[in-house]
Design a protein around this nucleic acid. Structure first.
Length: 485
RNA sequence: GGCCCCGUCGUCUAGCGGCCUAGGACUCUGGCUUCUCAAGCCAGCUACGAGGGUUCGAAUCCCUUCGGGGCUGCCA
């Protein structure tokens, strides 16, 4: 392509469900490449034959991209000079080009029915010939076409693949060549006038002046067909988009990540309290690396550093543990105000709080205690819920941990000494408890505090005890201890 | 089956002929710290799929082989 063209990259998902991890990794790299080169990031919806689900899909997809911080320069909601950006609204354009290919002799009408094709494919397979289209309708005469049409057959438009081969330079894989013997003539348009992916994608990329196509490697072998469309459109070789086929994101087994082998929906991660910056950071490192040992990458750093040539050619396994580790790190890096703001939706939707000022103040004080103990935002809920309500539910297995004599004596002593604490603060609580249970009774700290912890928080795992009691208040602390005596 | 892509610790990766007795991160194991759980700190385990070349020298180049994946649609 010409060196001085402005870079234009597109993310073009098809509306087959929620945006998933693989989609987003592609979107992230598309975005990063566009931003890195000061180019344009185009968002396009590949909905050639699914008009009905489009509206809500587009909204969800746009919402997800926005949430992640991947802003687009052209596309749904923002428009742009090369729209519309929904393929379902561009049907006339595809038809026009298909007709033109027909006129030019690049494409031809194919009257074969699905059943016929299938039968011939089977036969070809059995006799060890390649299973692609056999070219039956390639050189039909005018009278042949009339006869077939009179039979009531409605033709599709099929692209003619000339003899020879297609070679292109993939930014990630280097030079790739396909012999046309293995690239059979393909359908551009169904007999109802709807376009197929190969037609629509190529036409749109040319018309939208896309310069770089970064997409999944599953599309690698369809590239010669797309290039064939460019040729038929009269695009000069130097103006062809440049391809970069990204490796797959794999599940825990060795298959492409899907619902069956992992959590794929970005919405799922969002609902669990994964931070968008953590998802982006993790995904950026999946198949790409900045080259040094840095693991912490923000979106703006990614935009600055991203280079397609540093993308790995081999597939990468999605590792939840590492995502969690990064998410935990990002949470710990948040200020309390940020953490509060991001936690609130989880606390409200789980009904732990309604959102009053008093409740929020309690949360604000509790957050520093739990910030380093959570790996996702949704865990805030379980960590702070004991601070609300008069009583706490002590589960059976927790209760049995402290049903012995020593524990009961400890609780009793704790209650008595806490009753005497006049200024209810973390420091006075700690000195009271330590003085009584550790020094006087001679208990090990672990033995001494566990009963109190369980009685008051409901679990042997909790935020630091003295701070927790201070937040809870004297009345409820004593009430809960008494409940177990 | 055919075509195409891929192959470094369990996982993500660094590595582009000597700096590699292969580095980092996550995981895992052990330890320190400690009121629990975390966090933090320290230590440890573990990898160039195999076989041939080329070269003074190969994880790095070539070939073969094995393994994995994708495509082979009037899906995208």
């Amino acid at each position: 392509m010409s060196e001085n063209r402005q870079v234009r990259v597109r993310f073009a998902p098809s509306p087959t469900g929620d945006l998933h991890v693989g989609n987003i990794r592609t979107a992230l790299f598309d975005w990063a490449y566009a931003r890195h080169t000061a180019g344009k990031f185009v968002f396009r919806i590949e909905d050639t034959d699914r008009e009905r689900v489009t509206d809500q899909y587009i909204q969800a997809a746009a919402d997800t991209l926005r949430w992640l911080g991947l802003d687009w320069d052209e596309g749904p909601e923002v428009g742009g000079p090369h729209g519309p950006y929904l393929q379902s609204q561009r049907l006339a354009i595809y038809k026009e080009w298909a007709d033109r290919f027909l006129d030019q002799g690049d494409a031809y009408l194919c009257f074969c029915t699905n059943e016929e094709l299938e039968a011939r494919r089977e036969a070809a397979k059995e006799s060890n010939r390649p299973p692609g289209y056999d070219g039956a309708c390639r050189d039909l005469s005018e009278s042949d076409r009339k006869r077939l049409s009179d039979e009531g057959r409605k033709p599709v438009i099929r692209m003619r693949m000339p003899d020879g081969s297609t070679t292109f330079n993939d930014l990630i894989r280097g030079e790739v060549t396909f012999d046309h013997k293995f690239v059979p003539d393909f359908v551009l348009m169904r007999n109802d006038g709807s376009p197929l992916y190969t037609l629509a994608v190529a036409v749109d990329d040319v018309l939208m002046k896309i310069t770089h196509i970064l997409r999944g490697e599953d599309l690698l072998s369809s590239t010669p067909r797309q290039i064939r469309v460019y040729q038929a459109m009269g695009v000069k070789v130097e103006d062809y988009p440049i391809f970069a086929h990204l490796p797959f994101v794999m599940g825990t087994d060795n298959a492409k990540l899907s619902k069956r082998n992992g959590e794929v929906s970005i919405a799922w991660y969002r609902e669990r309290g994964f931070l968008p910056e953590a998802i982006c950071n993790y995904l950026a490192l999946l198949g790409w690396s900045p080259g040094d040992d840095r693991e912490n990458v923000t979106l703006s750093e990614l935009a600055e550093l991203f280079d397609v040539s540093r993308v790995n050619a081999s597939p990468a396994r999605f590792d939840m543990k590492k995502l969690e580790a990064i998410n935990g790190e990002k949470i710990r890096a948040l200020s309390i105000d940020e953490l509060l703001e991001r936690s609130l939706p989880f606390l409200k939707s789980s009904k732990v709080i309604t959102g009053t000022q008093d409740e929020i103040e309690v949360i604000r004080k509790a957050l520093p205690l739990i910030q380093e103990r959570i790996i996702t935002l949704s865990e805030v809920v379980g960590m702070v819920s004991f601070l609300f309500g008069e009583d706490v539910v002590v589960a059976e297995d927790e209760a049995t941990k402290i049903s012995d004599e020593v524990s009961r004596a400890t609780l009793k002593a704790a209650k008595e000494v806490l009753e005497l604490v006049s200024e209810w603060s973390e420091i006075s609580i700690e000195s009271a408890l330590r003085g009584e249970l550790i020094e006087k009774m001679g208990l090990k700290p672990r033995v001494a505090f566990t009963p109190v912890r369980i009685a008051v928080t409901g679990s042997h795992i909790s935020p630091p005890l003295f701070e927790s009691l201070a937040l809870l208040g004297k009345t409820r602390t004593l009430r809960r201890i008494s409940a177990l005596l």
